[in-house]
Structure formats: C-alpha cells, structure tokens
C-alpha cells in the first residue's frame, strides 16, 4: 500500500497537518475550528503516516500511546470541569484569567482546557481504533 510518493508526501504533510490542527484548536473559540476538528485532523495526519510507513512507525512518532491519550483526554476535560468546583462555583462553570503583560494580554479560560481534552479524546479514539484494527 505504500509508494515512495505517498511516503514523502506523508512525511511532509504530517507536521503541517499537526500544526494546522493546533492552530484550529487554539483559534476555535473565536473562529471556525475547535477540539473535535483538531482531533480529527491530527488523527488523519497519523493515519496518513501509518499508510506510508506502517503502524509501528506511526506509533513511534506519537509521543504517547493512543490508549493513554484516551484516558488523559477525559481526565483533562474533567479537570477543566472540576476546577470551578474548587472555587465554589458549579461544575463546568468557565473560569477566565488574564495572562501576560498588558500589551499582549491573553485571555485564558477553562473552556480551552476542556477543548484540549476533547481533542485528546478524539485523537485517542480514532488512533486506538485504527491501530488495533490494522495490527489485528
């Protein structure tokens, strides 16, 4: 299933796709994008790599196993939900904070953390499924 064109294309495309996904994730709150799409795009990137170089290579280039990504994603989303509980607000209330110097003021909130969790889960789900199907 692999040809040298595909292999080269995949290696070039992979980092670009991941970068694009991070971009989608971060800007998701204000412009089209978000955790679901970002997760799917990252998954596509690794599936592409899997087609080109095989499952082993794809697994190796992923810093954590998709199986762990699955659980940690859920945990991250849950943490985002629980953070307001510790300051006495209802579960999943959004908390916001201004970070950075005044000129480059960045607004950071738990919804972003939640979206990151969603993204992890989606990547984990897709890659767990495809990797184990292919290995089967």
């Amino acid at each position: 299933m692999s040809s040298s064109i595909l292999r080269t294309a995949a290696r070039v495309l992979m980092p670009l796709l991941v970068l694009f996904a991070v971009f989608l994730l971060v800007r998701g709150h204000n412009d089209p994008g978000g955790g679901f799409v970002a997760g799917l795009v990252i998954a596509v990137a690794f599936v592409l790599l899997m087609f080109a170089d095989g499952v082993e290579a794809a697994r190796r280039s992923l810093p954590v196993s998709p199986w762990h990504l699955l659980g940690s994603g859920l945990l991250v989303a849950l943490t985002a939900g629980l953070m307001p509980v510790f300051v006495g607000r209802p579960f999943l209330t959004a908390l916001w904070a201004h970070l950075g110097p005044e000129r480059w003021d960045v607004l950071v909130g738990t919804p972003l953390l939640f979206d990151i969790g969603v993204c992890f889960v989606v990547v984990g789900v897709v890659l767990t499924m495809t990797f184990s199907l292919v290995e089967d």
């Binding site: 978000g34 679901f36 799917l40 989606v122 789900v125 897709v126 499924m129 199907l133 089967d136």
Partner: peptide
Amino acid sequence: ILTAIVIGFGVLAFSLVLAH
C-alpha cells in the same frame, strides 16, 4: 450536528469492528 458527526463516526467504527 457537530456532536452527531463525531458520535456517528464512533458508532460506525464500532459496528465495523463488530462486523469484522
């Protein structure tokens, strides 16, 4: 729909493996 697309994908993948 956004939710439905992703869930739909999950269900489809699961039933595929079941079929397998």
